[in-house]
Amino acid sequence: MEPALIFDLILLLTLISLAWLLLASTDLFRAVVLFIAFGLLLALAWVRLGAPDVALAEAAIGAGISGALLLIGLGQLGSSERDRCPVRPLTFLQHLSAPVLIGVIIPSVTVILLLELRQLQVVTSGQQGLVQNLLSISGSDHPVTAVLLNFRAWDTLLEKGVLLLALITIWSLDQARPRFENTDIPPLLSGFGQLLLPLLILFAGVLLWQGGYVPGGAFQAGALLTAAMLLATLSGYALPSRWTGVALRLVLVAGFLVFLAVAAITLLLRGEPLHYPQRLAGGLILLIEIVATLSVAAILSAALAGGHPVTNLPPAATPTTKIEDKS
C-alpha cells in the first residue's frame, strides 16, 4: 500500500475514534482537550483533501479560538458541573433509542453510503472549467475567492449574516463577564504578547491580501486577528468602556452592512443583487474583504467575551410599572 493511503486511513481512524472518545467522555476538561486535538487533525484532513483554504480556517479557528472558547466556558461552570457531566435518568424511550441509533441506524446508513459512494463518478470538470474561464473577469485570481465573493456572493452575504446573527444571539443571552484574573500577569507572558501581537497582525494582513490570488481571505485573517485580541486580553489589556457602545457595534456590523449595501446598490442600478460592474469587481471584492476581516475579528472576539458589554441602562429601561411574573 502507498504511504499516502496509509496516512489517510490512520488519520481517518484517529479522527473517528477521537470523536467517539470525546463524545463519550464524562470529564469535560478531557473532552475539551480531545476537541483541540480533533481540530488539529481535522486541519490535516483538509490539507489531505486538497482544500488549503478550509485548512487555514480550521487551523486558525480550531487551534486558536475554539479551544480557548471552550476553556473559558469551562471556567464559568461551577466545579460540580465541570468535573462530571450531569447524568440524568433516561426514560424508557431514550434507553431504547440510543442503542437503536448507535447500533443500527448510524452504522447501516454509513455502510449504505460507503457502498453507494463507490458508484459516485465525480463530475467536476464542467464547473471548474467554467470558473477558470470566467476567472479573468471575476475580479480575483484565486478561484475560491472568485466563487465566494463573486459567482456565489449571495451565499457569502447570507453567511456573513449568520455570523452577525450568532453574535446578536450571544448578546441577547447574557452580559460579558471578566474571564481572566487581571492581577499577577507573569512578565514572560507580557513579553510573549509583545513579540507575537505584531506578527499576528502582520500575518493577518498577508492572509487577507493573498486571498486575491492564493488560499487565504477575510475569514482566516479575521480569525488570526481574534487570536491577537485574545492574547492581548490574556496579557491584561482591555477595551476601554467608551469604545464598547455604538463604535463597537459599528465595527461588528460593518462587514455585513457594507456587503448588504453593495447588494442593495447593485440591485437598484443593475436589477440583480451583487451583479458587479466588471471594472469595479476587483475593488469591490477588496473593500468587502477588508471590512469583513475587521468585522469577523470583532465578532469572534466579542463571542469570546461571551455577552453584551456592560453598560448603564438608559432611563427608559428602568421598570416603571410592575408587571406580575408571567411564569
Partner: peptide, 16 residues
C-alpha cells in the same frame, strides 16, 4: 522560532 518561543513560554507558565 515561533514554535520554540511558544513552547518555552507555555512550559514556563504551566510550571509556574
Amino acid at each position: 522560532l515561533l514554535v520554540l518561543v511558544a513552547g518555552a513560554t507555555v512550559a514556563h507558565l504551566i510550571a509556574h
